[in-house]
């Protein structure tokens, strides 16, 4: 179910710990990188791969907020709205994004490109307001202009990727 390089990565992860179960969180990242989300089928596959039970995998997937059990947009825009960011106007940023993309937080645009989520403190409070695209380096000190530029850049990137 995973590409050969990713399988190799999991093999390498398994050498790091005395217990294969420990490799679960990084292995889930490897799987999510490939698919964008982690289906039950994929969870079962990883369970067998790591020699643990499917229940043990799903318990973990559903506990950690960054693993997606359902598909999300190609670009997952995660806007921090915890107090420090709120003080600096994160609510305006997320509201602007919602309006711009014509979706509510938690939803995905019809073209499958963008999902907008409200998330909790990302450790970027001094450069608020901010957001994170997928698991990329943060976009910080946001203004409406910066948000516009970001969305444009991602759209162009998606088109480039397809063409």
């Amino acid at each position: 179910m995973l590409t050969p390089e990713r399988e190799k990565k999991i093999d390498e992860l398994l050498t790091r710990y005395p217990s294969s179960r420990s490799a679960l969180l990084p292995a889930l990242w490897v799987a999510q990188e490939q698919y964008g989300w982690i289906s039950l089928e994929l969870q079962k596959y990883l369970a067998i791969r790591l020699g643990i039970t499917p229940e043990q995998v799903r318990e973990v997937v559903t506990f950690y907020s960054m693993y997606n059990e359902r598909p999300v947009g190609k670009y997952h825009l995660q806007v921090c709205c915890t107090t420090p960011c709120m003080l600096m106007g994160s609510d305006d940023v997320i509201g602007y994004l919602e309006k711009k993309l014509d979706i509510r937080r938690g939803q995905t645009t019809a073209d499958g490109l963008f999902t907008v989520s409200q998330v909790e403190c990302l450790g970027s409070c001094g450069t608020a307001p901010m957001l994170q695209v997928n698991r990329e380096k943060y976009d910080e000190n946001l203004t409406y202009e910066k948000v516009d530029a970001l969305v444009d850049r991602l759209r162009a990137q998606a088109e480039g990727g397809n063409g």
């Binding site: 039950l40 969870q43 079962k44 039970t53 499917p54 043990q56 318990e59 559903t62 506990f63």
Partner: peptide
């Protein structure tokens, strides 16, 4: 299995 977190937690099964 324990599924989800916090106030949304439930007792459940794999599938």
């Amino acid at each position: 299995a324990k599924l989800n977190r916090g106030a949304h937690e439930t007792i459940g099964t794999f599938d």
